[in-house]
Amino acid sequence: MRDFAYHRADDAAGAVALVAADPDARFLGGGTNLVDHLKLGITSPGTLVDVSRLPLDQVEELPDGGLRVGTNVRNSDLAAHPAVRRDFPGVARALLAGASGQIRHQATTGGNLLQRTRCVYFQDVTTPCNKRDPGSGCSALEGYGRYNAVLGLSEACVTTHPSDLAVALAAADATVVVLGPEGERRIPLVDLHRLPGHHPERDTVLEHGDLITAVQLPASAVARNATYRKARDRASYAFALVSVAAGLELDGEVVRDVRIAWGGVAHKPWRALLAEEALRGAVLTEDAVREAASAELAAATVTAQTAYKVDMVRNLTALALTRLAEGTGR
């Protein structure tokens, strides 16, 4: 591991100025992913600016019923917060479906969103990977591909984003508050992460020196009647094969509003807007959900190793929404 300098930041603006001025500097949050990357040789910064002790660790209940979540709120604390459980159960479920008890105490809200892919080739520096080493090629195209994307992939990269939380936040219309060298700005969560295109080395639209300081969640009926379902190879402590964040507001049997976001299918949390559009105003039945999901999945690109994901995500979406309709699915 390359030697690096360590600075503990006193304030967010100072941390941003330090990192922005040094192309070789990185923010250090909870560290669950970055420290592993240092060990694996995936990244070799010259300076780490530790932002994990900045006092951005509160969940603030806003007058309109929404929440402002400080970036340093730990995943376990966010899942346990009464307002999150009550008004954003899909977010609480997603957090609880991720990692282990120990890691949820360490992982931060902003860091969770900025974690990087667990593609085995990205994490193995002896293999080509366009995300880790642009232009070197993609080993996953013809290699182990069970976790590969089926939507929005490119020839340069076929990996998926690993976060559960990000998928639930995509369905909850969350906004990310970012502090950069030029000041603060807001980015809808669905626009934070990128599709790979020709530049899979860029996971997000953030520039060097941009620091996520908070996530804002607007209150809504679809956020309150929401859930998160995750399919994985073992019952606990594993990344998603596919996952579904769903929210539902019914008027009798008719869908007044609906949110669907998918994990494990793309380079970013995949907000299924076509499926949502197909369901709004329709009578909510299992068949209607399957048809809506199929409309979204018409664009899927599959291999022998990923074909299962199309059926799995459709099934999981049908399960999530029919249970929410029955009032038992939160």
Partner: peptide, 25 residues
Amino acid sequence: HGQCGSCTVILDGRRHLTCLTLAVA
């Protein structure tokens, strides 16, 4: 690498891995 839990301690009152975190932090 944070996958097995054998390095778990109670850190500032909560269970915590010690392998995925820098001592200096």
